[in-house]
Amino acid sequence: MKNKQAEIIKTLSDRELVFHLLLTQFLLVVLSVGLGIVLFDNWSEFESLFTLNDSRIWTIGLPAGLIVVGLDLLLMKLVPESLYDDGGINERIFKSLSVPMLIIIPLLIAVCEELLFRGVIQTHTGLVWASIIFALVHYRYLFKWYLLVNMIVLSFLIGFIFSWTGNLMVSIMVHFIIDFLLGLIIKYRHQ
């Protein structure tokens, strides 16, 4: 199964990879809306998960994202590069993006994934199930123990932050900062 996915990815252009990434995010939103309609009693219950004027977006979300990126950069220096190899997918995606798209794509990913995994799944099944499902959805990491452990730890961290603050905007900020900064690093690493 892993090899089949790798073969398919090699046949895709960078532009097609980005298209499939966007398509996946669209499907996550559709799934979020569908599950939200079924699981939430009303729109205001769902809407209450978003608080825009919450200072914790900046005092918890931003620093948490920066700390994760800092730790990730440190670990990249300490562990073999082969452990971080995701088959080159992240590199192909982020290297092909313009700087404005390096903001838009990570923001879109953060909103779509946090909406489903924290807003819908964690709210109704708890932190453990949401974190496990989050890790499973990141399929290409399942075959690399180091990436899988990173994904599970990261999911639990973001899920904990959501449980602590009760605000999806805080978890969206954490997720965005991580994806945005690591995307920038990937894009400009060899320049």
Results as ranks from 00 to 15, higher is better:
F156A: 12
F162T: 13
T165R: 02
G166C: 02
Y146W: 14
Y141Q: 13
W145K: 13
L154T: 11
K144R: 14
M101I: 04
I132H: 07
S96N: 13
S98F: 12
I161M: 06
S155E: 01
P100G: 02
V120M: 03
I161L: 11
V99E: 08
L154C: 08
Y146I: 00
A135L: 12
I161A: 07
L148R: 01
L115V: 03
N167S: 14
V137T: 07
T123R: 15
A135V: 04
F143V: 09
F162I: 11
V128G: 03
T125P: 06
W164M: 14
R140V: 06
N167D: 05
L115Q: 09
Y146E: 06
S96F: 10
Y141M: 05
Q122A: 10
R140G: 04
L102Q: 13
M151R: 11
W164D: 09
Y146M: 02
Y141W: 11
L154K: 00
A110F: 04
A110W: 03
F143L: 08
E114R: 09
F117Y: 13
G166K: 11
V111D: 04
M101T: 09
W129P: 03
K144M: 12
P106T: 04
Y139H: 11
P106M: 11
I133D: 04
V137W: 15
F117E: 00
Y146S: 10
L108D: 10
I158R: 03
K144Q: 15
F162K: 13
H138V: 09
I161T: 09
L107N: 10
G166L: 05
G126P: 07
C112R: 03
Q122E: 10
L108S: 15
V149T: 13
I158A: 12
L157K: 03
T123C: 02
L147E: 06
M101L: 15
I161E: 03
R140M: 12
I104Y: 08
P106A: 12
H124I: 03
A110M: 06
I103V: 14
M151S: 10
I158N: 07
L127Y: 06
A130Q: 02
G119Q: 06
H124C: 00
I103D: 00
P106Y: 03
I109H: 06
A135P: 00
S96K: 13
G119F: 01
M101E: 14
I133F: 08
R118W: 00
F160H: 10
R118P: 01
I158F: 11
T165D: 00
F143A: 12
